[in-house]
């Protein structure tokens, strides 16, 4: 089975609130001293792919669209024994949305060849849009299943388990197929062996520019303009606890109950 896993490099979502700052002009988060990491759901996707490859023969290609730094995500994938890796490099100054990302990924996938299974993370820890997988499926004209956490190969196709709000579902699917992967106890990302990390530095990564994919900057830009961030701000956060005061405990409980009730009702 030929598997393609899309990876996104994002600003470390664990950046502590006090260290998190944004540029209100460009509507972007400021990296500051924080690191760039691979989005966790993408890592879950890679893990799911690795497990699938352990059960049935296959080949894994890791693909990312992002600035040159995103190569780190690919190196990590190679350290985890992905078979090949491809970076579509863009200008770090431009921010992209799900629509442009899907467009570019689809073009890259067509150029890379035929794949049976294309996997993305359910959403990214930065913008959390959760749209890329579905959009990519439409770009490629393939069926799509979201929130998958387990994949078994079955005959010509695959059997999937996917999470729903209340439980899970078993889905039978033909290939080729696009899936979005969510986390479960089973697909906790493994960590690479040190030797493999060292070896991965020597492996080659295919690197393309947009023009290599037959895409023009304008084409990508116009696609991106359909969805524009017009504001980004830090929500006001009250720092101090408002202790409920009152003359008697009954009074306090009454006030406490009212506050709880209003939250419960709006939730």
């Amino acid at each position: 089975m030929k598997i393609l896993v899309c990876l996104k490099q994002i600003l470390d979502p664990e950046i502590p609130p006090r260290d998190f700052t944004i540029n209100r002009e460009t509507h972007q988060a400021i990296q500051g001293s924080a690191n760039l990491v691979t989005n966790i759901f993408c890592e879950n996707a890679l893990e799911t792919a690795l497990q699938l490859r352990e059960r049935s023969p296959g080949e894994i290609t890791a693909l990312t669209f992002g600035p040159a730094s995103a190569e780190d995500s690919l190196r990590k994938a190679l350290a985890l024994k992905a078979d090949q890796a491809c970076l579509v490099e863009d200008d770090p100054a431009t921010s992209h949305n799900s629509a442009t990302t899907a467009l570019v990924l689809a073009a890259a996938i067509r150029k890379l060849g035929e794949f049976d299974l294309i996997m993305v993370g359910r959403e990214a820890g930065d913008w959390g849009a959760g749209q890329t997988g579905g959009l990519l499926a439409e770009q490629l004209g393939l069926p799509y299943v979201a929130f998958v956490d387990h994949i078994e190969s079955a005959g010509d196709g695959v059997t999937l388990r996917r999470q729903t709000e209340l439980g899970w579902e078993k889905v039978e699917a033909h290939l080729p197929l696009v899936v979005s992967i969510t986390n479960s106890e089973e697909n906790v990302p493994r960590i690479p062996k040190t030797r493999d990390i060292m070896m991965s530095a020597r492996k080659s990564v295919t690197s393309w520019k947009l023009s290599d994919l037959g895409l023009t900057d304008d084409e990508v830009k116009s696609n991106g303009e359909a969805l524009e961030v017009v504001d980004l701000y830090l929500p006001e956060k009250k720092s101090d606890c408002d202790f409920i005061e009152g003359d008697s405990i009954d009074e306090k409980i009454d006030e406490f109950a009212k506050r709880l009730a209003s939250i419960v009702q709006s939730a």
Partner: peptide, 19 residues
Amino acid sequence: SSLEERGHPFKGTQLSRVD
């Protein structure tokens, strides 16, 4: 992993170095 990615071992901490 936390040490690799953010230089400290406390995965999930909400505090920064200077809090």
